[in-house]
Write a protein that binds this DNA or RNA. Structure first.
Length: 940
DNA sequence: CTCGCCACGTAC
DNA sequence: GACGTACGTGGCGAGT
């Protein structure tokens, strides 16, 4: 970094478009789209906060009917293939300059030219005055402006472009980029270029000939007949393209440094504007930033809101929310009685009351919501369907909105009438598919879906947990040989897909009704199978109750500190830059350490290092290989280092802050209940079950997971739950005794396999004992053990033999698990969860070995999963029954994370310990380690 | 440009 | 022949 003053020039127009397309949907409660304004504002705030510019200018493309764009004059088809601006964006246009003006960022524009030309002009002028320039954009056309004192920053990707990087991409220095662009053309701006020449070829030609005219004068020296021809035929087109891509740095804008100083924004104006746009978090960001700059008095701490605002059911229930021109004769027009099915719309109070009467009468009914979003936290209900006998179902539209939709019942009215059926714990009748989704949506409408009788997704999962086809469509095909109407058929696909509220009832009714109909039929079919397999109890007492617990946890979310991660991101970025330089140096050329393909070329061909392992596509560059190779050369260690930073940055540090929700200020994972074959949960979007823990650097990420103000994080993990389960299930005397005495199990194992006294075990031996204890759970072989302990395979074999000799009960137990699985065809947990295993004994060596490991691992891993799931259900019940000031937030296989009110932490520890340790009675104690703190790392 | 597969790396 | 269960990312080739 230099001492010079830096002028930041923002390419506003390009950010408007990128923001619009990057953020799929965002609008105010009233439905006014705000996605582009939001993205644009976030970009600006990030720039102001991270770069802290003193001098700044914003540019926009402006048009004026009286002053034609000079490029358009040169070339009538310039940007002719651009589609018209979408209406949702057009509506947002007036707001960008409002945001910029309120922030007091000077705007520089000129009609007749483009923002890029203004940027070029300002850049030239600023450099003349001794300024450095940072162009905030990602437009490749602007790369021609880069120089030692001019860089380009893409804030959306957090990437800085230097002249060196431009050279790498185009093979020429920035000042010659325009020639390459002129040859290559640009389809998005409709710049023709020369056919058959792209960036790569163009770059090579300009590298050789220096500029366009010299190239055209020496066409005879160009290789390739067709290429020569094209250059000759399209020479003028190339010259025209050059004029179009060359930026004009002689625009009529005045550069007065004092005009471009960023001054104190008008907070009142920003407050009003962001409030209008419903931008809670940007407003907080502005406030924080202005406080940090000393431009604003810190706001007095506000007490946290008691509970998120629940939608209050309206006192006055309107029967009809929309009376848009439909008469009552048309009200029930969307019946679909073809192909023996009776699918119909419910659009009148009378018809709805008949449905209610039916729901009261039957002992089960299928229920399904149609909404505007796959993400339940964003979803708004459009309608719902019910079915209580096969081939007979109703769809109740309540928020479809398109021209001429006709009468619909009012959502609040229906929900109030349905509340007893959905919430009743005494008369559970609701059958559904993946009802966690419905719970999460209904929760926003203040309905607590507790009346679940069956969830077909969970039934299917319990019947065959290895399958990954628990979706309704796949199940309908598998069990009913029935092809369901696809979502794309009714809502369209790709760009033209619409939300369900825009779907015409002629399509929505059969689609929605079918969902309920099929769900009910599937339930009726799967129920006897579930009972027959002995899985009904685990469905009723474990999985179904757990669904609601998971939903509560997902809705709650967890707070993260984006600023802390921002700091890490910058640090990691610097490390990555330095490592990249060293790697390029040692590789003898630019090398992407994230590209296995490039690494193969460098390591095994250029440097001739030995191949240790192969993947399907060639020599492996996995970490274990690079570790071995690091003895022979310095490069592999640098690559490992690079990869570890890159992984942490890409997967966690940069990704997590983007997932903070505007409305809750927190991140919300999904806990998947029908994915893992052993019965474990999984977590996705984001996966919060693989947040780094192993390395010191990775652990820093955990510090960014924080409790709400006034709360602490409480972490409870089961101590060695899987090994304790082995002890219990195997009844191995040595293990049972050790756990009953509370002995150090890794030390014990070390003393057994190394045949030394318990007291004499060294810490290295204990470490080996730990590795073996864990390895045994997965069926680790000698080769793997040898690799991880860095010993010979012979020694590893000896240790494993010793293990099973000393823990003879474990050995016999494993043999029995394999025998049982061979006999029954499945592996089973302590609580009767089953996982099918392919016909053992008829398999090839490889498959047989795998099946045996599955037969051993599944009962262990699966029983642990069952245990913690039971504990979660019990704990949540207690939290609610006693209204404890604590919330369950996360589950990480053997660990639960809670948010607990400060004053209640000690009491909570006791409650959690008792619930988790007492969840079931084993022949060894089940112990829980507890910790608390102001972040996830300190709490562990 | 978008999609899907591969290799890789993170967790328990 | 390789240690069980997951999920996400970047690279890259094949489709557009």
């Amino acid at each position: 970094m230099s001492e010079n003053k830096t002028l930041y020039i923002v390419d506003g127009s390009s950010y408007i478009f990128r923001a619009f397309y990057a953020i799929r949907s965002l609008s105010t409660a009233a439905g006014f789209p705000t996605n582009a304004i939001y993205g644009f504002t976030q970009m600006l705030m990030r720039l102001l906060r991270d770069e802290n510019p003193e001098y700044i200018a914003m540019t926009f493309d402006v048009s004026d009917v009286d002053v034609p764009n000079f490029r358009k004059v040169l070339y009538d088809d310039y940007k002719a293939n651009r589609s018209a601006m979408p209406d949702e964006l057009r509506e947002q246009m007036p707001y960008f300059s409002k945001v910029v003006e309120a922030l007091h960022i000077p705007i520089k524009t000129q009609v007749g030219v483009e923002a890029d030309d203004v940027i070029a002009t300002l850049t030239r002028q600023a450099r003349a005055e001794g300024f450095e320039v940072c162009i905030v954009s990602a437009d490749k056309d602007l790369m021609q402006l880069l120089a030692d004192e001019v860089r380009m920053l893409d804030t959306m990707r957090d990437k800085t472009y230097t002249p060196e990087e431009v050279q790498e991409r185009f093979n020429v220095t920035p000042d010659k980029v325009k020639y390459v662009l002129a040859l290559a053309g640009d389809s998005s701006d409709n710049i023709p270029g020369v056919p058959g020449i792209g960036e790569v070829t163009g770059g090579r030609l300009i590298e050789e000939f220096g500029d366009l005219e010299n190239l055209l004068a020496n066409i005879d020296k160009v290789s390739g007949k067709k290429r020569k021809e094209n250059l000759e035929n399209f020479a003028d087109q190339a010259r025209l393209s050059l004029e179009l891509v060359t930026l004009r740095d002689d625009c009529d804008v005045e550069f007065q440094p004092e005009d471009l100083v960023l001054s104190k924004p008008n907070f009142a104006e920003l407050d009003a504007l962001f409030t209008e746009l419903e931008f809670g978090s940007p407003l907080r960001d502005v406030r924080k930033w202005m406080e940090a700059k000393g431009w604003l008095e810190p706001e007095p701490e506000k007490p946290k809101k008691a509970k998120k605002a629940k939608k209050k059911p309206s006192d006055q229930l309107d029967f009809f929310s929309s009376a848009a021109g439909a008469n009552s004769a048309a009200a029930e027009q969307n019946d679909h009685t073809n192909s023996g099915k009776n699918y119909r719309a419910i659009r009148s109070v009378e018809a709805f009351e008949e449905v209610l009467a039916k729901l009261a009468e039957v002992d089960r009914f299928a229920f399904d919501l149609e909404t505007t979003s796959l993400n339940p936290l964003d979803a708004q209900i459009c309608g719902m369907s019910f079915a209580w006998q096969p081939n007979d179902a109703v769809y109740i539209p309540c928020a479809h909105s398109y021209e001429g939709v006709g009468e619909q019942l009012d959502l609040d009215y229906i929900l109030e009438k349905l509340r007893p059926f959905l919430e009743s714990e005494d008369a559970k009748k609701v059958v559904g598919q993946h009802l966690k989704y419905e719970w999460l949506v209904l929760q926003k409408y203040d309905i607590d879906l507790r009346a679940i009788l069956y969830d077909t997704m969970l039934m299917s999962y319990l019947l065959d947990p290895s399958s990954n086809k628990h979706g309704m469509d796949a199940m309908a095909m598998q069990w009913l040989n029935y092809q369901t109407i696809s979502y794309e058929d009714v809502a369209g696909k790709g760009k033209s897909q619409v939300t369900f509220d825009k779907v015409h009832l002629d399509a929505a009714v059969p689609y929605g009704a079918e969902d309920a109909d099929i769900t009910l039929m599937l339930c009726n079919l799967l129920e006897p199978m579930l009972i027959e397999a002995g899985l009904k109890e685990i469905h009723d007492t474990l999985e179904v109750p757990l669904t609601r617990v998971l939903a509560i946890m997902e809705a709650e979310g967890i707070q993260i500190d984006p600023e802390m991660l921002g700091v890490l991101s910058v640090e990691f970025d610097q490390e990555l830059g330095e490592l990249q330089d060293q790697i390029d140096e040692l590789s003898g050329g630019p090398t992407n350490p994230n590209s296995p393909k490039q690494l193969r070329e460098v390591l095994f061909e250029r440097l001739g290092l030995p191949v240790k392992k192969r993947t399907k596509t060639g020599p492996s560059t996995a970490a274990s290989v690079l570790e071995e190779l690091s003895e022979l050369h310095e490069l592999p260690a640098l690559i490992l280092e690079y990869r570890s930073f890159s992984k942490l940055k890409g997967t966690y540090v940069d990704a997590l802050p983007l997932l903070i929700r505007e409305d809750t200020g927190r991140i919300h994972t999904s806990f998947n209940q029908a994915v893992a074959a052993t019965g474990r949960l999984s977590s996705s979007n984001p996966n919060l079950q693989n947040i780094p823990m192993r390395t010191a650097r990775g652990r820093q990420i955990r510090k960014a997971f924080v409790p709400a103000p006034g709360y602490q994080l409480l972490v409870a993990d089961y101590s060695q739950i899987e090994l304790r389960i082995v002890a219990h299930m195997s009844q191995d005397p040595l293990l049972l005794d050790a756990y009953k005495r509370g002995a150090d199990i890794h030390r014990l194992t070390a003393s057994q396999i190394f045949d030394v006294d318990f007291e004499e075990v060294t810490s290295a031996q204990r470490g080996a004992g730990k590795t073996i204890n864990f390895g045994v759970l997965y069926g680790m072989g000698a080769r793997r053990l040898a690799a991880s302990l860095r010993i010979s395979q012979g020694e590893a074999t000896q240790y494993i033999d010793n293990y099973f000799e000393r823990y003879a009960g474990v050995s016999a137990f494993f043999d029995k698990l394999v025998a049982d699985a061979t006999h029954s065809g499945y592996a089973e947990t302590m609580f009767g969860r089953k996982r099918q295993i392919a016909d053992m004994g008829t398999l090839g060596r490889r498959e047989q070995a795998f099946a045996e490991r599955v037969a051993i691992n599944t009962p262990i891993q699966g029983s642990a999963a069952d245990i913690i799931k039971f504990a979660m259900v019990n704990l949540q019940a207690k939290i609610e029954a006693e209204e404890l000031p604590m919330r369950m937030l996360l589950q990480v296989h053997d660990e639960l994370v809670f948010e607990v009110e400060d004053a209640f932490v000690d009491a909570a520890k006791t409650i959690v310990r008792e619930a988790m340790e007492g969840v079931c009675e084993l022949d060894v104690p089940l112990l829980v380690d507890l910790g608390c703190g102001d972040n996830w790392l300190d709490a562990k």
